[in-house]
Design a binder for these strands. Sequence first.
DNA 1: GTTATTCTTTATCGATCGACAAAGAATGGA
DNA 2: TCCATTCTTTGTCGATCGATAAAGAATAAC
Lengths: 206, 206
Amino acid sequence: MAGRPREFDRNEALAKARDVFWSRGYEGVSMADLVSTLGLASARIYAAFGSKEALFREAVELYDAEEGGFATRAIAEEPTAQLAIERILREAVETYTRKGRPHGCMVVLAATNCASENEGVREWLEGYRRRRTASLVERLERAVEDGELKPETDARILGDYYATVLHGLSVQARDGVPRSRLLATIPTVMLAVCSAAYPRSFPRAT
Amino acid sequence: MAGRPREFDRNEALAKARDVFWSRGYEGVSMADLVSTLGLASARIYAAFGSKEALFREAVELYDAEEGGFATRAIAEEPTAQLAIERILREAVETYTRKGRPHGCMVVLAATNCASENEGVREWLEGYRRRRTASLVERLERAVEDGELKPETDARILGDYYATVLHGLSVQARDGVPRSRLLATIPTVMLAVCSAAYPRSFPRAT
DNA sequence: GTTATTCTTTATCGATCGACAAAGAATGGA
DNA sequence: TCCATTCTTTGTCGATCGATAAAGAATAAC
């Protein structure tokens, strides 16, 4: 098990693929685009990654483990649901509006409209979105159990709400709405979870 | 100026094109798809509409004049900003989750990820989204002037917020989140404008 | 060295993409 | 009736799509 060693950095190529798929989506990037972006002949790309679709899926996994993983990290690290959600919103805006980087969320934008033959890719990304919603709901349920949020709080409604806002932020960022304007909406967005908590530190909305 | 009369209903064909573009997006629909969906040879489609892109633009205009026009109608018809926004949210959810119809908003979903050669189409749809945001901001500014909302209200932040939620609802609906769950989030979404109004009829959020 | 294995290079493959040319058919106006 | 105009039919265009075959080059195991 030896063979000729690969002459390019696979991780580097994968990162380039992630960026171009993030920018223009799965169907918006052709093999010719990948050849020029990665600087590799198509046969080399196929040898290393298998197919355009397999490369895309690996690119999404990389995105989700790095830039896209802020929600998982915030939920794991913040002591309360309110702090977790505020951090998620702030980091979402920052991640989605970084200079020199693609705007919006790759998981939301890279395969929303698909040809019927690529419906499988769309559904696979939908799974990522559903899981993010589920993790928000789960964290909010825990906050109700912990007594952080009022017992009459419906965690699923609240989780659906924050999933909706996060999805909307991607579209807004992709449309070029500046970071400052998106950050400015966060106190308004926080009203929901704060009003489900016992009155303490309300944000000044609007 | 006479010539052979057209043998098919142009409006009917346009409605079919709108539906398939709404379902799968501009790039997700091929001319072969249009030929089979409209039941017309490609030369007939070109004769009637000019090009795939011209047909798409006409289809979006039709969408915006009918299904997609609920925001314009609500703003024109409702006496207060709060009533207008609540109606917009409700009709958005209803429009985006109608049985047997494509889910989500055509303007949001039909060209979010585009090949570089179709960037013009994406920007054109972005214009529709920006105008919707602007009309929300404008209505909220008027509400501040009218005294419906507190004078310290920042109408642009609030308008950006509702634009974000509306964009997010499209993604949620496309992902198959059921109507009942999306409707259930509306009281939470209404918290923002209600807290900018003088205390009266607050929704029971969560 | 020999062999098995893997990567690189080069040149394509058939399918599909959006679009159109040319000829025939149906209308209104002269 | 004949013409100008417009639509319909048929066939196909060059470009691009994702993907691969075949041959040469570089490694490790033996």
